[in-house]
């Protein structure tokens, strides 16, 4: 189900007054030009989704990708271990894992290179393509995310579709969302509040 890529020329055609093609009854995006698309994609450091049929969807980058795991984790160098602590917690003591009960670091991270992730969808899954890893178990969520029912789009409704990665909203080590204090609901009028 390879989806149709937007045709760059059609906006220009519409501008000079040509009639729209009959099979496209919907309007072509406004921010259609290559330069605008590229600007949005580079602004969000977005990468196309590495899945067949969704290459026109882009995933926004995040801060975690800048962490330099190779400063400690190097091939052939055994990471520091403190046997009195759970595996991984000795070095990353700030990471608390609240995810599906009995998971540890290497349920998700590959031991030889922590930037690479375990995935049944694609063995080359990395932090940038975390959805390949998350979607290995959460298949319904992955489908909804690709379709648009789950997750958040960072660009407007029109034009290139850039969406957030799973890890933008969910802490991968404790993915359940935390409770929030809602924005205060103001009373209808200050006078009424005084009377009550």
């Amino acid at each position: 189900m390879l989806k149709k890529l937007f045709i760059t020329g059609s906006t220009a055609l519409m501008l000079i007054g040509c009639s729209q093609e009959p099979e496209h009854t919907y309007s072509e995006p406004l921010n259609q030009s290559d330069s605008v698309r590229q600007e949005l994609i580079s602004d969000h450091r977005a990468q196309p989704v590495a899945m067949l049929g969704y290459e026109h969807v882009y995933v926004a980058g995040s801060e975690i990708e800048r962490k330099d795991c190779a400063r400690c984790h190097q091939p052939g160098v055994e990471p520091y271990r403190d046997a009195s602590m759970p595996l991984g917690q000795d070095a990353h003591w700030d990471v608390v894992i609240h995810h599906a009960g009995s998971m540890d670091c290497f349920s998700c991270h590959k031991q030889e290179d922590p930037r690479r992730l375990v995935s049944v969808i694609d063995q080359d899954a990395t932090l940038e393509t975390a959805y390949l890893h998350c979607g290995s178990c959460h298949k319904n969520e992955l489908q909804s995310w690709l379709g648009g029912a789950h997750g958040k789009r960072v660009t407007g409704w029109d034009g290139v579709r850039i969406i957030e990665n799973c890890t933008a909203c969910h802490n991968p080590h404790a993915p359940a969302r935390e409770k929030v204090i809602p924005v205060a609901q103001p009373t209808v009028t200050p006078d009424r509040a005084k009377r009550n």
């Binding site: 919907y26 648009g148 789950h150 997750g151 958040k152 789009r153 407007g156 409704w157 029109d158 929030v180």
Partner: peptide
């Protein structure tokens, strides 16, 4: 071509906005 302010502000992505005539849009998928 931007999304409404409520859609942009939503911290969970519970709000989806789009073109009902575009068969590839998120709203049509939903």
């Amino acid at each position: 071509g931007l999304s409404p302010a409520c859609v942009e502000a939503c911290p969970t992505g519970a709000r989806v906005f789009g073109n009902l005539l575009d068969p590839d849009s998120e709203i049509r998928w939903i």
